[in-house]
Computed example of a mutant assay.
Amino acid sequence: MIALPRRLCIDRGAASTQLVIVVPALLLIALLVVQFALVWHARHIAQYAAQQALAAARTQDGTAADGQAQAQRSLAALGSRVLTAPSVTAERTADRTTVRVEGTVIRVLPVPGLVLHASAAASGPTEKITTPTGDQP
């Protein structure tokens, strides 16, 4: 058996060096997972608000303002911290009603320039009362 000099066999500090390299990388990956989970959640919040607003705006006596008010109520109840600076636009015509909800997702990573957005749209026919023959009363 060949005896190596004692200086070549010592690995003192190797675990600390590996820890210093690996732990920040793992923390960054974990924060990225959390950030994109928040984006996914914010999109669902925006979709829910858009659907609720569409349901309010497309009724026979509903207006685009009713839809916007309903979307604001839904956003306040669900996503005031996740979906920041939300904007709601509602359009209502005689045939179609469309609602769009957009906002900025809260940031977990303090990366300059990282601005993530979430948006959703809901659209459907405007309700109108008709007779069985298809004529309006």
Rank of each mutant, 00 (worst) to 15 (best):
residue 33 V to C: 02
residue 127 E to C: 00
residue 108 V to P: 03
residue 87 S to T: 15
residue 106 I to V: 14
residue 123 S to Q: 09
residue 35 Q to K: 01
residue 91 E to S: 07
residue 70 Q to C: 10
residue 10 I to T: 13
residue 98 T to A: 14
residue 120 A to E: 00
residue 79 G to M: 02
residue 115 V to S: 12
residue 11 D to G: 10
residue 35 Q to A: 00
residue 128 K to V: 15
residue 95 D to M: 03
residue 34 V to S: 01
residue 71 A to G: 01
residue 75 L to T: 05
residue 136 Q to Y: 11
residue 133 T to V: 15
residue 111 V to E: 07
residue 58 R to P: 05
residue 73 R to T: 06
residue 43 R to L: 06
residue 35 Q to Y: 04
residue 57 A to L: 01
residue 92 R to M: 03
residue 44 H to G: 15
residue 31 L to D: 03
residue 48 Y to M: 13
residue 26 L to K: 13
residue 20 V to P: 09
residue 129 I to W: 12
residue 110 P to R: 04
residue 48 Y to R: 14
residue 80 S to R: 03
residue 91 E to M: 13
residue 58 R to C: 00
residue 102 E to F: 01
residue 22 V to A: 14
residue 55 A to M: 09
residue 80 S to T: 06
residue 39 V to N: 05
residue 21 I to A: 15
residue 91 E to N: 06
residue 38 L to D: 12
residue 110 P to G: 06
residue 74 S to N: 00
residue 13 G to K: 08
residue 10 I to F: 12
residue 53 A to L: 03
residue 104 T to Q: 07
residue 40 W to S: 09
residue 76 A to I: 01
residue 129 I to F: 08
residue 7 R to V: 03
residue 91 E to H: 14
residue 2 I to W: 05
residue 59 T to K: 01
residue 25 A to Q: 06
residue 136 Q to P: 11
residue 87 S to D: 15
residue 91 E to C: 10
residue 102 E to G: 00
residue 77 A to K: 00
residue 2 I to K: 04
residue 126 T to C: 02
residue 87 S to E: 06
residue 120 A to C: 02
residue 120 A to P: 03
residue 121 A to L: 01
residue 105 V to Q: 08
residue 104 T to N: 02
residue 62 G to V: 02
residue 98 T to K: 04
residue 42 A to P: 15
residue 60 Q to F: 07
residue 36 F to P: 02
residue 66 D to K: 12
residue 53 A to S: 11
residue 34 V to M: 02
residue 59 T to F: 07
residue 52 Q to T: 15
